[in-house]
Design a protein around this nucleic acid. Structure first.
Lengths: 232, 232
DNA sequence: CTAGTAAAAAATCTCGAGAAAAAGCATTGA
DNA sequence: TCAATGCTTTTTCTCGAGATTTTTTACTAG
């Protein structure tokens, strides 16, 4: 499933088809907020922007419905999925539940190869953080942050759990980005990550899940407290 | 989301577009096993069967990827999602976890309107069971069974939880149907449903979730024990 | 000035044909 | 007999144009 489902695709492989190119470009533009929540997605207009035919773009949009980034209403075309604080709270809540469960399983099942990969992912993330200080090269950090969280639960054997989590992660990232227009710098995420990793490697599932829950909820709180020029 | 996401759509509304018609017909044929797991879905051939154009059928297939009923591999077309005992176990496992959580929330939040709807859903299911004795009108029972489970967790406020559950339910139904070619009659599902409903209305969350977990796992066991002419 | 209706404009939905790629098949050589 | 190569057939992927439906605009009546 991981290979075939659009969401949760951690492959960096090149898009082999125009549909997939358009799919990725659209997904990126939605997550990064260039296409705002609720925006109408007019096929006739967008097909030029993305340089594909109308049918191809329609197919890409259909694919994005999987990720709940696009919605379609009968015969009234496509729209960017709307956002709301309530929705983000729901996402956070479920992410805490599912990701903690996945982490438990991962800690229980992970072998030393997993440990080493976790260390490696943390190391790459740390390097990206250092590089981030001066520049505004967020992209690399975002990607490595995603990979870190993915590796953390990689030893969890449940494909479905990881599938759902990849969707929720993507959604959460979208909210984070939407709010990021104002808030440039994150908190001391580094320390959180380090403590999390250490607890995982020490096989302390209770501590690790507590830290993870805190970590996820922190992101929600920092957005919740924003001077809400509404997300819509 | 419930209105826009293909999975978990409890609307009985008529399909307003050819894409949706094809989508529903295909979904039905996959869940009911007419299109076998792993089957290649040749657009050129299928477009005649379903009476739509090639592009339309492609779009319907793209939509089915959301539900993980269809997979697509780069430039090699579409296939019916493969099945395996391992996958069904994973589905069951996560369904137990998520549906129990949803039930807990539903019991905590549900008001008396919810209670009455639960009673009504159970009543309709019972009627369908009675009618089922002689005939082979499974469809009605299947639908009402689905609705019963849906109403059971209807008071749960989490849209995402319900969304994931609707996907898992659909997947589980597919496995149940695939195995049903041999096993015509279910066990005493009626008693299980009744006990479940009573515990829910009595607001006994622990008992209700225990019963629900048993209920879901029972389906898995009855299929696990089959003389496996492989599901592939 | 508002409400309702009807024409006009825009957008969606749908289809079939052409280009690109993959799969199948036969021939050739070791 | 087996492997490799090149050709043929099949299938997928892509596009632009036509048919419906929705939305907007303009107009008339109250």
């Amino acid at each position: 499933m991981a290979k075939t489902t659009p969401a949760g695709n951690s492959q960096i492989s090149e898009p082999k088809t125009l549909v997939e190119s358009a799919y990725r470009a659209l997904r990126r533009d939605i997550i990064e907020g260039r296409l705002a929540p609720g925006d109408k997605l007019r096929v006739e207009h967008l097909k030029d922007d993305y340089g594909v035919g109308a049918g191809t773009l329609r197919e890409a949009l259909s694919l994005l419905i999987s990720d709940a980034l696009v919605v379609s209403q009968g015969q009234r075309g496509f729209r960017v999925a709307p956002t709301s604080l309530e929705d983000f709270q729901d996402i956070t809540c479920n992410r805490v539940m599912l990701e903690c469960e996945a982490l438990r399983q991962s800690i229980a099942m992970g072998d030393d190869v997993w440990e080493s990969e976790l260390l490696a992912a943390f190391h790459r993330l740390t390097k990206a953080e250092e590089k981030l200080i001066g520049s505004d090269n967020r992209e690399e950090w975002e990607e490595r942050n995603r990979v870190f969280h993915e590796v953390l639960i990689a030893a969890c054997p449940s494909r479905w759990l990881k599938h759902f989590l990849s969707i929720l992660y993507q959604q959460a990232e979208r909210y984070r980005r939407l709010s990021l227009y104002l808030k440039p710098i994150p908190r001391n995420v580094h320390a959180e990550h380090e403590a999390l990793m250490n607890a995982a490697i020490a096989r302390d599932a209770d501590k690790a899940t507590t830290l993870l829950a805190e970590h996820i909820q922190m992101t929600f709180r920092s957005i919740e407290a924003l001077p809400i020029e509404q997300l819509n």
